[in-house]
Design a protein around this nucleic acid. Structure first.
Length: 104
DNA sequence: GGGGTGACCCAGT
DNA sequence: TACTGGGCCACCC
């Protein structure tokens, strides 16, 4: 799988995250590991930063529920509108976490 | 080719 | 609870 295809796979998965739920960068990397052979949270973070504009990027947060630097305000507004449980600076990932297995 | 950087993560202190 | 160190992988000097 080429880097470009990996980007496509990441964006494709992010598009499937249902409203009101979120995934961490690591969870995304993990879910694609089987298919791509790669599992790097950092890589997913980079991909979202560069190509996330066309997908619901706000549904992808850090494993601690922190929102993407520079976009906290925007992300909070969208997440709140979708009914994602917010906690402190970010989201309550323990409650909002979603995995592809759940949504097949 | 070598080295720094980043929307990350986990284990240890 | 907060910091550190190591691992991760593509990108850009």
């Amino acid at each position: 799988m080429t880097p470009d295809e990996y980007v496509e796979a990441v964006l494709d998965l992010v598009e499937r995250i249902p409203e009101g739920r979120v995934m961490s960068y690591g969870a995304v990397a993990d879910a694609l590991a089987e298919r791509s052979g790669r599992a790097s949270a950092r890589l997913v973070g980079n991909i979202m930063a560069r190509h996330g504009g066309s997908v619901p990027w706000h549904r992808v947060v850090s494993s601690a529920g922190r929102l993407p630097p520079g976009h906290e305000r925007e992300a909070r507004a969208r997440l709140r509108a979708e009914g994602v449980p917010l906690r402190g600076e970010g989201v309550d990932i323990r409650v909002a976490a979603w995995s592809p297995q759940e949504g097949m």
